[in-house]
Design a protein around this nucleic acid. Structure first.
Lengths: 253, 253
DNA sequence: GGTAGGCGCTGACGCCGCGTCAACCGCAAC
DNA sequence: GTTGCGGTTGACGCGGCGTCAGCGCCTACC
């Protein structure tokens, strides 16, 4: 039986010697024989196996998976189907990411701040669904769906103005906190009222006092939200929550 | 000035303590102060910087790039534009990859071998353009474009039959080589003639003898092609090239 | 005979962004 | 005293090799 040394194999298959040694090291492709000083020699069967490895590798499969397939422990079609799923998921993530990046570029160029709606746009499906699941738990399906619908109904100009209005509220709240105003201060409650109005416009309906309270909790409990507020001014999330609680309590009484 | 310990920061920003230590280790975000036993304390400026880090990280930028941006050595818009390019390139690569994987699944299910056209489909842009550039060098723009057009013009059934016809030729060539037939043997040249016919049908025109010679060279020079032939039978690429050279020389004389 | 060069070998580090141990320290509550 | 929390500094691991470093063997040339 003919055998080939590594240099030949690298030329035939277009892989580096390092790669062949790696495949040997991880047990993916062992030489047919190793003679005089550890020289690797590959036979026809090994070349064929290498071909299959390279084919599957080109499809993006991991070496461990490829090994499982070639050793018969895994069905190729099953593995590829699963792989195709992952590819599609990853592609969708890149899609959203690219859109968010484009958004950010436009906003930076226009000198406008980040839109809160885009805060979650780049999150992967798991985190996004976690957030949405929490929202549904807190406020119910109807509220979440109504909110999404309301956002869609809004005119372009109106929708674009939302981030700026939120930003303004955040800054005014930060100022008041800086000046030492308590959460139940009239000036603070005035700003909260405006905050409530903006939230109501994005939700498509005026939230119940309890729901608004819950939103304040979310601002602190959710790392993503808290981070955004604390970027405006450290501690703002907690301050805002307190003010929202006061406002909600007054609505009820 | 207020400062926060790590536990607070992890809750505010939603990052792990490990991440904060990592950012400290690579010099991306250093604590405002470290007191009594190395305890890290973060000030408002650090929280703001962390916010910016997380924002850019969510967009998929690398930590090194983020550091450059925040330290003023790199313009955010420029970096993001470049990043968006890369995202799009990567997304396109995944698209092609997913298509190739789907193809492969269909072929495996149908029990048919890989279509040669798909050999290059999953390659990244660089390698693909390298290959195409080489093809244009070898045969000229017109030939390459005509070939692509011919493939598109072909009927579905015809196009699907191409892989099988190539496969059959490869197997017959391998058999003849096994039996010790020389490249100029009549039986070998008969198979080569069929090979030429298939190539002609995919190119949309009968190749010049010189172009056909060049194709034989490519079969050996290109690792990807050589690998595919040598998977059918080790050494087949070289054998096929020799046979193609003989055929081309006879056409000229 | 020496020596330079080419090809092969075996480690081992590096990449990227942390997760995840392990081992230890200081402070507070029981 | 001990338990537990919250912090510290290492270190390994992931995937798929690229890229040295340092060595051995064979050949060619002087």
């Amino acid at each position: 039986m003919r055998t080939w040394p590594m240099t030949e194999v690298t030329k035939l298959a277009g892989v580096s010697a390092r790669t062949l040694r790696h495949y040997d090291a991880i047990g993916l492709l062992e030489p047919a024989a190793t003679g005089h000083g550890g020289l690797r020699r590959y036979g026809e069967a090994e070349l064929l196996r290498l071909q299959q490895i390279l084919l599957l590798r080109r499809l993006g499969l991991g070496l461990a998976t490829i090994g499982d397939i070639l050793d018969g422990g895994l069905d190729a079609v099953t593995a590829l189907r699963r792989h195709a799923e992952q590819l599609k998921t990853e592609r969708e993530r890149l899609d959203r990411l690219a859109a968010t990046v484009d958004d950010t570029i436009r906003q930076l160029e226009g000198g406008r701040p980040m839109a809160p709606e885009t805060w979650f746009a780049g999150l992967d499906a798991r985190r996004r669904s976690e957030y949405e699941a929490e929202a549904r738990r807190r406020w119910g399906d109807a509220a979440v769906d109504a909110g999404a619908a309301a956002m869609r109904r809004m005119g372009e100009a109106e929708r674009e103005a939302v981030p700026g209005r939120f930003e303004a509220v955040h800054r005014r709240m930060a100022e008041l906190r800086e000046r030492g105003c308590a959460a139940d201060d009239a000036a603070v409650q005035e700003v909260v009222a405006e905050h409530y109005a903006i939230v109501a416009s994005t939700w498509g309906a005026a939230p119940e006092a309890q729901a608004y309270r819950g939103l304040g909790d979310l601002y602190v409990d959710s790392p993503e939200f808290a981070a955004v507020f604390d970027a405006v001014a450290a501690g703002l999330a907690v301050y805002l929550r307190a003010a929202m609680h006061v406002w909600a309590d007054r609505q009820v009484s």
